[in-house]
Design a protein around this nucleic acid. Structure first.
Length: 280
DNA sequence: CCGGGCCCCTGGATGC
DNA sequence: TGCATCCAGGGGCCCG
């Protein structure tokens, strides 16, 4: 389940493989059209950067036909994996057993492939910066949680403006970009806030702000959490799994108070929290 | 504009 | 053992 730390780790590994490379061919499998846009437009484009906003990867392309730049926008969904393989590697074949949905052949003979068993990923190519055409969610994204625009003030005001459960607010990409189910549970556990809390004042907002940043930064350092499908570009797993305090630990003892963690549903998502030390 | 609810998609786990 | 059912999840979309 790629969230900010996973996508950022993929970005860092991917960049040296593709920056400066030109896309010479594109192949795709019959993917649901609404999840796969005009990827053929990438042909002829040279990757000038590998950037990230929230859970989206952004690859600006110079020189795509007809002689103007464009931007490849990619979301890994829940099971998307990017690999850079040798051109003759059978694992990179579209329509083979590896769930390869999109294959970009690069000018060094290697191929960038998107594998996506559950088909929740999306890829398209749009005019540079025309993010709304790629995804309304991308265009409406809130600040990067590890950047300067994500302040205590921003979070506190955003939480005060709504009576939705605080976990639903953290998952809302318009308030803050890149937090998904795992790191929402982790941040709330660390801040001692009940996921269904609907009134989070300034003091608790400040605690949550610190928790979100600390959790995400620590997860980036460990290259993300591999729970099921997530892999890095080199095929390795993220190493944050053993650091998780809440997610996936329902019924196990809380690492802070030793009471059993409880699992419920908040905002249509599986939610694990400590009923003793996370307060409404 | 906002929030709630449902849908997409399929491998793996669980249940009978 | 084999089949059916359920569950996971982010974003799109519809509705009130």
């Amino acid at each position: 389940m790629p969230e900010l730390p996973e996508v950022e780790s993929v970005r860092r590994q991917l960049a040296p493989h593709v920056r400066g490379r030109t896309v010479v061919a594109v192949a795709r499998d019959p993917y649901p059209a609404r999840r796969l846009g005009d990827v053929e437009r990438a042909v002829g484009g040279t990757v000038t950067d590998v950037a990230r906003r929230g859970k989206f990867l952004l690859l600006p392309l110079a020189g795509t036909a007809p002689a103007h730049p464009s931007e490849l926008v990619l979301h890994l969904g829940m099971s998307g994996i990017l690999r850079v393989l040798d051109g003759d590697d059978p694992a990179g074949r579209v329509g083979g057993g590896g769930h390869v949905r999109v294959r970009l052949t690069l000018d060094d003979g290697r191929v960038l492939v998107l594998r996506d068993a559950r088909r929740f990923g999306r890829v398209t190519v749009v005019d540079p910066g025309d993010h709304g055409a790629a995804s309304p969610a991308l265009a409406a994204l809130g600040p990067e949680p590890l950047g300067p625009a994500f302040t205590v003030d921003h979070l506190a005001r955003g939480l005060a403006r709504s009576s939705a459960p605080v976990k639903a607010r953290l998952l809302d990409q318009r308030l803050v970009a890149g937090v998904g189910n795992i790191y929402a549970d982790e941040s709330l556990w660390r801040a001692g806030i009940h996921p269904d809390a609907r009134r989070v004042g300034r003091v608790r907002a400040a605690r949550l702000h610190t928790a979100v940043r600390d959790v995400l930064a620590a997860a980036v350092e460990r290259e993300g959490t591999t729970f099921r499908d997530y892999q890095l570009v080199n095929g390795q797993s993220g190493r944050y799994l053993t650091e998780l305090d809440a997610y996936g630990r329902g019924g196990l003892p809380c690492r802070r108070c030793d009471g059993p963690l409880r699992t419920t549903t908040v905002a249509q998502r599986g939610t694990t929290f400590c009923p003793r030390c996370q307060r409404r």
